[in-house]
Write a protein that binds this DNA or RNA. Structure first.
Length: 105
DNA sequence: GAGTCATTCGTTG
DNA sequence: CAACGAATGACTC
């Protein structure tokens, strides 16, 4: 079930170029809500998982955040690996280059 | 500097 | 209708 809100989140997320990452706060702001939780939930329930680069979304603290409902574990390792392939390097579970952050305002 | 508490939006049961 | 969820921000210790 895809709602209008989710559509906005996916669109904003698609607006992020490869090799860049965005934060839940930025996405939330882009869709017009102040609760990154709603964004996280939309991504968690993402019906377009492979179509939506949900792995390009990280926490505002430059931390890896979560992936597929898991805030830690193998899923996170895979997320970091995927981002590394795109040029986004994570260090100790955090973004090594903050310059890769992309604000989709 | 690190840890904890309260806040907020949307979805699902 | 009520509870939960990929978080954030601010305050306190």
């Amino acid at each position: 079930m895809i709602t209008a809100f989710q559509s906005r989140v996916y669109t904003a997320l698609c607006s992020v170029p490869r090799g860049r990452v965005t934060t839940y706060a930025s996405l939330a702001s882009a869709v017009g809500c102040r609760s990154p939780r709603a964004v996280g939930q939309a991504l968690k329930r993402n019906p377009l998982a492979p179509s939506v680069p949900c792995h390009r979304v990280i926490a505002s603290d430059s931390s890896i955040g979560g992936f597929r409902g898991f805030r830690s574990g193998k899923a996170i390792a895979e997320k970091i690996k995927m981002l590394a392939e795109e040029g986004v390097i994570f260090r100790d579970g955090k973004l090594a280059d903050a310059g890769r952050l992309f604000k989709c305002t």
